Computed example of a mutant assay.
Amino acid sequence: MKRPRLRTVLAAGAAAASLLCVPARAAIERLDDSASPRAQVRSDFANAQGMDGHMLVLPLGRVEYRLATAPHVGRRARIFYVIPAMVAGLRSPAGMLVQWRGNGAFAGGSGRPGDRVQVWNGVVQSPWMNETFELTLRVDPRELRMPSGSALSFESFFEIETLP
């Protein structure tokens, strides 16, 4: 009978031990917001409120989100507001800051293109989560490369991270 090599036994034992030390992973997925009245936000700069330093202030108003959370009811989770990394007409993420104020259970905050910002943490209680954000953009005109008369637009989304 052939005996296993000591190195093989030790490697197998180390691999098994490392599996015991790995915490259960959280599952992350994009939330369905297709029931939201308006997912894409846009500004043609007509509503600009002037400058704040070198940043142009663009209030976008209230944006309602309706998030399908049915698969996660009863689970502990975190929800993140994700700003797309690429915004047409914007040269760099440093040229735009998105600010929001939640009008419900979600926290207010701010972020730049490419950011993923936590806005909620808790146990999902219902199959739908409704939230309204009061959105404002702060845009550095030096970072814009857009044809005259065009609008700045993007579509943020939400991700949910269910916890073990």
Rank of each mutant, 00 (worst) to 15 (best):
L56W: 05
P93T: 09
F106S: 12
F106Q: 03
A16K: 01
L10A: 03
P127D: 13
F45K: 08
L20Y: 06
R7S: 15
L31E: 01
R42P: 13
A17C: 08
S36P: 03
V82D: 11
A27N: 10
L20E: 03
Y81F: 15
G104H: 05
R78F: 06
F154A: 08
S148L: 12
P59M: 10
W120P: 00
A46C: 07
P84M: 04
L90V: 07
L10K: 07
T162G: 07
I160T: 01
L56Q: 14
V73D: 14
Q118M: 06
W100F: 07
D32A: 05
L31A: 15
R42D: 13
R7T: 12
L90E: 05
A85F: 03
L67Y: 02
L10M: 01
V117F: 00
P93Q: 12
P23G: 14
L163K: 04
V22E: 10
M51S: 11
I79R: 02
W100P: 03
P147S: 09
G122H: 10
E155Y: 07
Q99G: 09
F80E: 01
R138G: 04
A35C: 05
N47C: 11
G111E: 02
Q118T: 03
V9C: 04
Y81T: 13
R5D: 15
R142G: 14
P23T: 14
G122E: 01
H72I: 05
G122A: 06
S110L: 12
G114Q: 08
G50N: 04
G122F: 01
L152R: 07
G122P: 04
A12T: 02
A14R: 04
A48T: 09
A16D: 02
R5W: 15
S153I: 01
H54S: 11
A11M: 01
E161L: 09
